[in-house]
Design a protein around this nucleic acid. Structure first.
Lengths: 204, 204
DNA sequence: ACAGGCATACATACATGAATGTAAACTTGC
DNA sequence: GCAAGTTTACATTCATGTATGTATGCCTGT
């Protein structure tokens, strides 16, 4: 059954990416062959090679369908018409990112990113993530400094350390939960952690 | 140069494991061949297959030369003749684990574990880690409960959430730092984070 | 409006290379 | 001399990329 309509072709492309998510999650990126992905989508490797250059290209296309939690957090925090004061905007942005991580697709893709792939295979991904992390760090430090100027951040806490604490908690939360989502409900634990953190670092 | 003395044979085994650490770190576990490891150690694949059953076996042998940070933390916290009160024992154990993570071998192996391998390839590792994490969680909750009974833990913080915060911060710290060790000095930032955390959760 | 032509969207077949595991040969310690 | 280490050689598997086949959708000219 060759040559579909334009819309059908776009549908197969999406089906291939869906299939990739499923198989990558099951077997890990390096151990899955393009044949397996194609079969999962009810296609053959020919379809894969039509839509994508190779496995790395397909992998990148898969990533482009989701927004990284760090990216989400940054976009929220940097939103120019955000009505909240520094600490509150940070808190809300973090909660929002946790919220969105639970969406099925986001959850699948980030489980793959955290636990089912090796960075060495895609060096640019590594560099990209490092850039995002440092950008995120800078922005957060800025916010915590604003909070300190306004007197809402406790004086004994440096903006830099507060930032590292928040970023580590966030990264660790994702890492741990995605490894074993059954062990706890991130929708409950996450917000309670974040709220406790912010409640405890404000000037008492 | 065949057939060495017993001591020399043991030395080649160690050399192979050293080589594995280096190459796994450079190229990722799945992309490295046993040939590459053998060459790095100045041997051929024959030597590898003599000392190890296959790649997975060699990988496990490599892991057995180090102690996981979580394992280290647990051992410290559960030490029966630990002279410290609950919160202080937790704090010290965490600092100690951070300390030991910086040892070259530990750092290399855990970089591999966090960033250079896919869990799906070694399912038992995954299960092992999950068991360790839940064991660690239970023990920490216990300590925080003791602290609450003694009145040293702030009443507004539940032992469960305190535990998750500490574990997430710890995991995130390792994850972030091992991905990009140049971005900050964990020997400085780590302790400052941990100290701030404990200073902020005690009853004021 | 429709007939031809061309590009599209795949499937199939094939060539290649790389890694694995094993068997056999070889060399030296004990 | 036998078994422990180690090398070399070989067979097999498997994924990849490419080349080719092919039927159909889509468009253009009249």
């Amino acid at each position: 059954m060759p040559k579909r309509t334009k819309a059908e072709a776009e549908a197969t492309r999406e089906a291939l990416l869906d299939a990739a998510e499923v198989i990558f999650l099951e077997r890990g990126v390096s151990r899955t062959s393009l044949e397996q992905i194609a079969r999962q989508a009810g296609m053959t490797r020919g379809a894969v090679y039509w839509h994508f250059k190779n496995k790395a290209d397909l992998f990148h296309a898969m990533l482009e369908r989701v927004k990284t939690p760090l990216r989400q957090l940054l976009d929220d925090v940097e939103d120019p018409n955000c009505p909240y004061v520094p600490l509150e905007s940070l808190r809300r942005a973090t909660l929002h990112a946790i919220e969105r991580l639970q969406r099925p697709r986001s959850r699948r893709v980030h489980t793959i990113l955290f636990h089912r792939c090796e960075v060495a295979s895609d060096v640019d991904i590594q560099a990209l993530h490092e850039k995002l992390a440092s950008e995120c760090y800078d922005t957060m430090v800025e916010r915590f400094e604003q909070a300190r100027e306004r007197g809402t951040l406790a004086e004994s806490i440096s903006p830099e350390i507060a930032t590292r604490m928040l970023m580590s908690m966030f990264a660790g939360l994702m890492y741990d939960w995605l490894r074993d989502p059954e062990s706890y409900d991130i929708g409950d634990v996450g917000p309670r952690m974040i709220d406790t953190f912010f409640a405890r670092i404000v000037r008492q």
